[in-house]
């Protein structure tokens, strides 16, 4: 910024007679800047409006929701949330979801770390084919695998367990993790590996003590993306579970009852599914841009 300012002032002094023209140009950039800010604010407001509406509804009673529109709840109530936190069949849904998402994150990272290292450092028979085969799994529509997954996991006795969902989500999360981590690892100079070996580090010791701390932010970003894709997926999670490991997103469909939709409860459950994501992105906010910059999502 300071550099650009000095260039500008130097130019100003050089052509003094053009000073008014310059200030016009400056005014123009400032206006463009303000327009940009205004546009962004408008976009963010439009983006948040549907979410705000959901939050707003979650604090209303059903009679109030059905009686008319209002931007603020008149009779502010926490009853919808109380119902969710007071009923194990409800709150266990969140526990189940968080449980299989964490398991998936751990499995993905543990298997992807060494593989990404191999892809970033070594040439071996079939490495390119292997890499593309991994990525092609990202293109498979989950609907295609629905029925075979159901039969496969039933036949090995894993149906309705957390590990089944975690393994199924590995289908798209492991390739993703390998891809992102490979990008981060390629940014670490090879000399570091070689120096460590000369210093007498064995491979496992080097990997854990030196290499992993070097790509900390990469691991954070990878964990974030694994979390994100596992958390938002429902089709597979719903198919592979019935009672014990049912995710919250599937439990939400229960709000349809004989007396009609329980809109307030549905909204409250929805709001609670948004919170973990916001919490996670807050922690990686400074690194996420770099994860996207590699273009590996």
């Amino acid at each position: 910024m300071t550099q650009s300012n000095t260039t500008m002032t130097r130019q100003n002094t050089a052509k003094k007679e053009q000073a008014p023209v310059y200030s016009k140009a400056e005014r123009k950039t400032r206006n463009a800047h303000l327009r940009g800010r205004f546009g962004l604010v408008l976009y963010v407001v439009l983006l948040l409006l549907p979410i705000y509406w959901l939050v707003n509804m979650s604090f209303k009673t059903n009679t109030e929701i059905l009686s008319g529109l209002s931007f603020f709840p008149e009779n502010f109530t926490l009853a919808n949330y109380a119902k969710i936190f007071g009923d194990p069949t409800w709150y266990m849904g969140y526990v189940n979801s968080i449980f299989y998402v964490s398991m998936n994150m751990v499995i993905s990272l543990v298997v992807a770390l060494p593989a990404a290292y191999a892809f970033s450092r070594y040439k071996f028979i079939g490495d390119k084919h292997m890499f593309f085969w991994l990525l092609s799994n990202r293109m498979a529509p989950p609907a295609v695998f629905l029925l075979p997954f159901f039969q496969l996991y039933s036949s090995v006795g894993l149906f309705d367990t957390h590990i089944a969902v975690a393994l199924a989500h590995c289908l798209f999360n492991v390739p993703l993790a390998v891809w992102i981590l490979e990008g981060f690892m390629s940014g670490v100079p090879r000399e570091i590996d070689e120096t460590a070996y000369i210093d007498g580090y064995s491979f496992p010791k080097f990997f854990v003590r030196i290499f992993i701390p070097l790509i900390r932010s990469g691991i954070g970003v990878t964990a974030f993306f694994c979390f994100m894709f596992s958390w938002v997926e429902l089709l597979l999670a719903r198919t592979l579970t019935s009672v014990d490991a049912k995710p919250i997103a599937a439990i939400m469909t229960r709000t349809v009852s004989a007396s009609g939709m329980d809109w307030g409860l549905l909204a409250a459950a929805g709001v609670l599914t948004i919170l973990p994501g916001m919490l996670v992105i807050y922690f990686v906010r400074n690194h996420v841009a770099k994860g996207f910059a590699l273009g590996r999502v």
């Binding site: 919250i248 997103a249 599914t273 948004i274 994501g277």
Partner: peptide, 18 residues
């Protein structure tokens, strides 16, 4: 960054519900 990313972190069926 955080505000713009929010819709990406909402479970897909909740997006439908919203």
């Amino acid at each position: 960054l955080i505000l713009v990313a929010i819709p990406l972190l909402i479970p897909w069926n909740v997006v439908g519900t919203i």
